[in-house]
Write a protein that binds this DNA or RNA. Structure first.
Lengths: 237, 237
DNA sequence: CGCTATTTTGACCACGTTCAACCGCTGTGG
DNA sequence: CCACAGCGGTTGAACGTGGTCAAAATAGCG
């Protein structure tokens, strides 16, 4: 069930400073609040489906969301994991296409929705927002192109090592000398993020564990030797 | 050698109507011309290298350009082939990163260069340009994400079939019942575009030829049975 | 406590890579 | 003029990564 929570200013949002509206004057921020609705999604709830019309912009206030595409055979590939401050749906909004991926909460999350009309109105009169969006889309594009390169030329082992390092940056919390990844994904979800099968991913997990690179306890993964992981990624296999 | 050709209005550019400046008033178009330089590049000339600073925006006036990334081992992967009207360098410009790929002319080409400062100035005051850029980046992003999905889950055969169909849309010219692809790439370049090795690509070429799907003469490829290629792409292998 | 979903391990197989040889063509120097 | 090196393209054979299938072990949950 989706619960609507009471409205409040974007300024109170955790990562407002890094967000696309950070340079917006007070007046426009109030205008924003009019077009905005905030919803709560429980773990495993779908926020939107691939193919849905793009009616506006989504912005994560708290929690974590996975964004994935499905292929004809029903297999899923996770494009990225989003956390607070991240926005979703821009690309479909601007290219006038249906939404190109499905968004699903992997933790209980609060997600704001910003109506297309209101958003475009603000965009038109505030070039700072446009520039921030251009910046964000550009970074996403560069990452996506890098990912394609990876999938074409790197082994599953290297791709998994890279994922662990990316996760360390995004979700790592220091804990008795090691960095614990504060994100809970099933083996299947990990596999879908790396672009491989569950079986291969499990074998890589135990290989890395045996080699002392990581520590694994259920769905908790800790990075013990980030440098050695980095070596892996640069040296061939 | 790079020859600078004389300046003329963007309005005279072949695909001006589809370009990002199509809605710009006359005054701004004249302003554009001040910041713009037009250069000629012969086949195999490099327009810019991966890692170069992003000093502005490139726009192809005529010819064809390949955009590729190199991995540490020196292998190249072609991200896309660009033709007249396409712009390059946006993503690096907006994300304040060095250029993420190398651009090389695969035909004799004319390429305009638009200085960063002037471009941003026009962008700031013309939301139509910003919206068109957002649209373009969004489409590129969606394509790149789709490509990553392909590389992860589809066979080389299917990816090559998809490439042929994409090329048919972009470069196809009708010719005695079939569509000839008006683009000349080496087997290696084709392989780099599909994300496989030369050997595999050659085998696929001869397989498709034997099955009557395409006709191959040196570097000329003609599509005989686009429907059967399409079938390939949707049905598993 | 029993049922189901998730995780793990093993055996096998296939696609695609790697390595090697060969062909045809072009350009170069003796 | 021919020899030969160099390059792009093609084909064959062997190998390996990683996918598939099957089954067992474990965890999660009513």
């Amino acid at each position: 069930m989706i619960c609507q929570s009471k409205s409040r200013s974007c300024k109170l949002c955790g990562s407002f400073e890094q967000g696309i509206f950070s340079e917006l004057p007070e007046k426009e921020l109030k205008q924003l609040a009019v077009y905005r609705t905030a919803n709560h999604y429980n773990r495993k709830q779908i926020i939107f489906y691939e193919g849905n019309p793009a009616l506006g912009l989504f912005c994560i206030r708290s929690g974590k969301v996975k964004l994935y595409k499905s292929n004809p055979e029903g297999k899923q590939q996770i494009l990225r994991i989003l956390k607070e401050g991240d926005t979703i749906g821009q690309s479909s909004l601007f290219s006038n296409q249906p939404l190109q991926a499905t968004a699903e909460a992997i933790e209980d999350s609060e997600v704001c929705f910003l109506d297309k009309t209101g958003f475009l109105l603000i965009l038109k009169n505030n070039s700072s927002v446009a520039l921030k969006l251009l910046r964000g889309l550009s970074q996403e594009l560069i990452q996506a192109e890098g990912k394609a390169l990876d999938l074409a030329y790197k082994s599953a082992r290297v791709r998994f090592a890279e994922l662990l390092l990316t996760f360390k940056e995004a979700f790592g919390v220091s804990e008795k000398g090691s960095q614990r990844l504060n994100i809970s994904l099933s083996r299947e979800e990990l596999a879908q993020t790396v672009g491989t099968t569950v079986e291969t991913l499990v074998r890589l997990l135990s290989e890395f564990r045996k080699d002392g690179l990581i520590e694994v306890d259920k769905r908790n993964i800790s990075i013990l030797e980030p440098e050695k992981l980095l070596e892996l990624t640069s040296s061939g296999y």
